[in-house]
């Protein structure tokens, strides 16, 4: 019962975080700031989702697979974000700077 509530909370928080990331993708003014909204809320969103599913599945091989999926996302997401930002900078895209 407690596990059910916990996984429910994890899944809902993850969903909320995903939608907020999607909204940020539209509210922010330029590419670099959008990258913050998109590329980086991804990690926690995925972590929450996979944790919620793992609690639901319980101790099994499947939850280890979920852990593996999380590890891949955890390792590749910053690399992809960095190479996107780096490519945009080399490509000559100027960031909008605030005060």
């Amino acid at each position: 019962m407690l596990v059910d509530i916990l996984s429910w909370v994890c899944l809902m928080l993850g969903s909320l975080l995903g939608i907020i990331g999607g909204i940020g993708l539209h509210r922010f003014p330029d590419f670099y700031t959008r990258l913050h909204a998109a590329g980086t809320t991804d990690t926690l969103c995925a972590a929450l989702f996979l944790l919620g599913l793992g609690l639901q599945i319980g101790v099994a091989l499947a939850s280890l697979k979920l852990l593996l999926i999380f590890l891949f996302i955890y390792l590749t997401s910053p690399t992809a974000s960095h190479s996107l930002a780096n490519a945009a900078m080399i490509g000559g895209l100027k960031p909008v700077l605030g005060k």
Binding site: G22, F31, L53
Partner: peptide, 26 residues
């Protein structure tokens, strides 16, 4: 508007697809 925006959006879409498959599997 820039091509990098599109790639960033597709990257996010890919991550969400992974989660969608995982939720569907469960």
């Amino acid at each position: 508007p820039t091509v990098y925006d599109r790639i960033a959006a597709m990257n996010m879409l890919g991550t969400k697809t992974i989660l969608l498959i995982a939720v569907f599997a469960a």
